[in-house]
């Protein structure tokens, strides 16, 4: 008996309304996103509480624990000084902070590569990946998506996975899960809107 069978098929049980309100924070700019753009007391601390672990974890996975604290500090200081350039309408604060973090990380990797007389775009000993810049970008986006997926309802998450990961058509998803076709379509559309807000965010200028 696999453990999975002992849990409910998750799309059946999700109360739609209360959970949708929670995940709507992922589509529409949240209060924190808006407040950060305006600046003001407490918002830097609130942003740090909400996103500090994300930024620090991304740094740890790319430049290691020793440098992660310093870069996290640099990211939030830079974000605060550039807060006027953040536009909540264009994407989430988390995605914007990830853009800043990515550029800081790439700067560090470039410095380290210079010390070793290597080019960053050649095979990198530290990372053991062929394209570290793209690797950092993808890692950051995957972490953002992991958070964004978690904020979806269980049903929407299941539908998104079936549509995008398993490549099922909307009709196949409806047939295999019993979810009405119209609901499948709206889950995919709304889910995609929410996920998209978390990636593909142009990095702030002057950060490279």
């Amino acid at each position: 008996m696999s453990a999975a069978l002992l849990t409910r098929p998750d799309w059946h049980n999700v109360p739609e309304e209360p959970l949708r309100r929670v995940s709507d924070q992922m589509t529409e700019p949240t209060t924190l996103d808006d407040a950060f753009a305006r600046g003001g007391d407490s918002v830097l601390r609130a942003a740090y509480d909400e996103h500090g672990s994300f930024v620090y974890s991304l740094c740890r996975r790319t430049v290691g624990e020793d440098l992660a604290a310093d870069i996290t500090q640099e990211v939030f200081v830079a974000a605060w000084r550039q807060r006027a350039s953040y536009d909540p309408a264009r994407g989430s604060l988390g995605a914007w902070l990830t853009g800043i973090t990515r550029h800081k990380i790439v700067d560090v990797l470039r410095r380290e590569a210079r010390h070793r007389n290597e080019r960053l775009d050649s095979s990198n000993v530290l990372l053991d990946v062929s394209d570290p810049v793209e690797w950092v970008r993808q890692l950051g986006d995957r972490m953002l998506l992991a958070d964004a997926m978690e904020a979806l309802t269980e049903r929407a998450r299941a539908v998104i996975e079936l549509a995008f990961v398993e490549d099922l058509t909307h009709e196949q998803i409806a047939a295999s899960t019993g979810i009405p076709l119209g609901t499948v379509k709206s889950d995919v559309r709304r889910g995609l809107d929410r996920l998209r807000r978390h990636i593909d965010f142009d990095p702030p200028t002057g950060e490279t």
Binding site: G52, S53, F54, Y56, A68, M143, L145, A146, I160, I199
Partner: peptide, 23 residues
């Protein structure tokens, strides 16, 4: 991009470590 990235997300990508208080 969402589609491609979703296929590659691993449990590690969901793991978070809080920064030290000094940060």
């Amino acid at each position: 991009r969402v589609r491609h990235l979703l296929r590659d997300v691993t449990p590690d990508d969901a793991r978070r470590t809080a920064p030290p208080p000094a940060v």
